[in-house]
């Protein structure tokens, strides 16, 4: 049996410490847990909210595929990834990645890998709603995100 991978795509918020506990409780073999959470920025007061659209079914499947790649490549003992959708206001959580391994480097690398691939291949799209009331636009994909993903090529 492989390492446990937990993936959720949900509208509601998540609790970082609860997710870490779920992943690491009764697992004395785990030596390192890395937690990454991505939040909605206010863009210097310009942003009222983000609207996150996703492709139901494919979003979960793609994140799970990415987590399984990370488990295999870095020898992770467990991985959790949660991505929210719907309307999210500045300061709120968008995404959570938790990875566990015997030593720290694999957990750090695994979390980075999952985020880099999630950003470029999990089917989510962000639309901005601005504080001045104007119709927001869809966020453009960044070349820097492709570059971050490509550094894992080998």
């Amino acid at each position: 049996m492989g390492a446990p991978v937990t993936v959720r795509v949900q509208r509601e918020d998540f609790d970082l410490s609860a997710e870490v506990s779920k992943l690491s409780s009764d697992r004395p073999d785990i030596g390192a847990v890395v937690t990454f959470s991505g939040l909605c920025r206010d863009e210097a007061g310009m942003l009222a909210a983000l609207e996150l659209e996703h492709y139901p079914g494919m979003a979960e499947a793609e994140i799970e595929r990415i987590c399984n790649l990370a488990v295999e490549r870095f020898g992770l003992q467990a991985a959790t990834a949660i991505h929210r959708y719907g309307r999210i206001i500045p300061g709120e959580n968008i995404v959570l990645v938790v990875t566990a391994s015997p030593h720290r480097q694999a957990a750090f690398d695994g979390a980075s890998f999952i985020m880099d691939f999630l950003k470029t291949s999990a089917p989510f799209w962000k639309k901005e709603h601005l504080t001045d009331g104007t119709a927001g636009s869809w966020v453009s994909a960044k070349d820097a995100d492709d570059t971050a993903r490509d550094r894992w090529k080998r």
Binding site: G38, Y55, E62, I94, V95, S121, A122, W125
Partner: peptide
């Protein structure tokens, strides 16, 4: 069928074809 494909991919037998812009999640 909910898996990424290139533009050269044949569509024969596809249950569902999705078209979308580059992704911006995370």
């Amino acid at each position: 069928n909910q898996e990424h494909v290139e533009h050269g991919e044949p569509i024969a037998g596809a249950r569902e074809i999705a078209l979308f812009p580059p992704m911006t999640g995370g």
